[in-house]
């Protein structure tokens, strides 16, 4: 992905950072705020021009870096994202919601009106779209940060690399590589856990395998994931059902290809079996 050199400016004009929220839980914005040790350094290097979760004061656009959290779930949001794109030179989506539609994209496989009637006493007041979709479905996105939530280190690396004009050191390879660098024994091999690590993008620092748990793919698909082979192993050797497979893949990144295609495949298989 090309990185624009956004900051070849004089000392006085620090690049302006804007952070936006769409349909989301705020967790990714919190990841930014959780960078306690580095937050002051970031504030020293960029000007936080628009970040409602952190400060009330806001400066008018344009902004140099825009970070977008959340998916597009309402007609209002679909409008607003276009303005955000116009306001930001460099647009980054942060987190699973913004890059894949997030957990709320599960409704894309269901009837939203029916849901509304179950949940709300007066569903007619709820204005929402039929689908929850990633930002990149609506506008051009310069860079995507995966994860539910995003990894704070990756967030810092992205900001730093934009400031320094280097290619962000944000890998697309499998989680396994990070996991093995930490020296963790493979949970799939040593415990027979259904781990999505071999098809999931690295970046979290192998959090779940570090707690003896299988990866559930919150960073979404890696480069060239071999869904067939892992699926074959999980349904064959590990004897997972098609239903289990579908549920594993339809989590935070279920609406992102090729997780979507694979989960649809297991849904069809589930129906055939029934």
């Amino acid at each position: 992905m090309p990185v624009q050199t956004i900051t070849r400016k004089t000392e006085t004009a620090k690049p302006k950072l804007a952070v936006y929220k769409f349909s989301s839980c705020d967790g990714c914005q919190l990841s930014l705020l959780n960078l306690e040790d580095e937050l002051l350094d970031i504030v020293g290097a960029v000007e936080i021009a628009y970040f409602l979760e952190a400060r009330r004061a806001e400066q008018p656009p344009p902004y140099d870096i825009g970070m977008v959290e959340g998916s597009i779930s309402t007609p209002e949001e679909a409008e607003r994202i276009r303005q955000v794109r116009r306001d930001c030179k460099y647009l980054v989506t942060i987190g699973a919601c913004a890059t894949s539609g997030g957990i709320q994209a599960l409704r894309n496989w269901a009837d939203v009106d029916q849901y509304k009637q179950y949940v709300y006493a007066h569903p007619q007041y709820v204005a929402s779209l039929e689908t929850a979709t990633p930002i990149a479905t609506h506008v051009f996105v310069d860079f995507e940060l995966r994860g539910c939530p995003v990894n704070a280190r990756q967030l810092l690396e992205l900001i730093t690399s934009l400031l320094k004009g280097r290619k962000p050191n944000i890998p697309n390879y499998s989680l396994c590589i990070e996991c093995k660098r930490r020296g963790l024994p493979c949970v799939m091999v040593s415990k027979g856990e259904p781990c999505l690590g071999p098809i999931t993008q690295a970046g979290c620092g192998a959090l779940c395998p570090g707690c003896h748990r299988a990866c559930y793919g919150c960073f979404g698909p890696m480069e060239q994931p071999n869904m067939d082979s892992l699926g074959h192993q999980l349904t064959g050797t590990q004897k997972r059902t098609a239903r289990e497979m579908k549920h594993m893949l339809r989590m935070f990144n279920g609406y992102l290809e090729p997780f979507k295609q694979a989960s649809d495949h297991y849904e069809r298989q589930e129906k055939q079996n029934a």
Partner: peptide
């Protein structure tokens, strides 16, 4: 067809 290219 089988290799996950995961690097393990």
């Amino acid at each position: 067809k089988r290799c996950l290219s995961c690097g393990n």
